[in-house]
């Protein structure tokens, strides 16, 4: 494991912790897209089908369990928690799941390394993760006042993707047999989706202003 990969995983972990902490302590999910969170729960479920069959390392298994557990807890909080659910703005979070899920599924069936259930599901999870942030980005654009924690959450998620790209570049040079072109393309697409957000995030940071995305 190289430093970029570890930093990427840690940023991913922090993003989830920031979000859980926000929801748990403030008892509010204002500005958070349930659609995106449900898509992440689906991403982790379909990606980690091998969690009990293929052992890679303790680190790997523990992280998988954390991502599965946290994504389902977040969805539970927004849908079921009697206080948190009141802060969910359903009318603003209108992105349709199937606009993303169906094309990703079709793509995974046709473009994969091997046509087996587990492999297609794994590939589907990569495609879906690449676009799962879209409902959240749309919601951010509609929200006039983005609170700091929500901004940091999205920033950390974007940073995680950027660090993974550095990790792949590093691995490409240090591990000659490391070729994962589906992962790379999906990962680059995913990172590009954050470009616009990053631009406004840094602008607001530089000018010491509140983050606001143009409509």
């Amino acid at each position: 494991m190289n430093i970029f990969r570890l930093a990427g995983d840690m940023t991913h972990l922090f993003s989830v912790l920031v979000l859980l902490l926000k929801i748990h302590t403030i008892k509010s999910c204002a500005g958070i897209s349930l659609k995106t969170q449900e898509l992440y729960a689906l991403v982790f479920t379909t990606r980690y089908l091998d969690i009990f069959t293929d052992f890679i390392s303790l680190y790997n298994t523990v992280m998988k369990l954390i991502f599965l557990g946290s994504s389902f807890s977040i969805v539970w909080y927004i849908r079921r928690h009697k206080i948190v659910r009141r802060s969910y703005d359903k009318d603003q979070d209108t992105f349709r799941h199937y606009f993303l899920v169906i094309p990703c599924l079709v793509l995974a069936v046709f473009i994969n390394h091997k046509f087996t259930f587990k492999e297609v599901m794994w590939t589907f999870s990569l495609y879906l993760e690449a676009v799962a942030i879209l409902p959240q980005l749309v919601l951010l654009q509609r929200t006039r006042n983005i609170d700091n924690l929500t901004g940091q959450y999205v920033f950390l998620l974007g940073a995680y993707r950027a660090l993974y790209i550095l990790n792949w570049i590093y691995r490409h040079f240090t591990e000659p047999h490391y070729v994962h072109w589906i992962t790379w393309i999906a990962g680059v697409v995913q990172t590009l989706l954050y470009a616009d957000f990053f631009y406004y995030y840094f602008q607001s940071w530089k000018n010491n202003e509140k983050l606001q995305l143009p409509a």
Binding site: R5, H12, I56, N60, M63, K114, N167, T183
Partner: peptide
Amino acid sequence: SNDDIEKDEL
């Protein structure tokens, strides 16, 4: 098998 790509990333 050798066909399987290693999935050591999260």
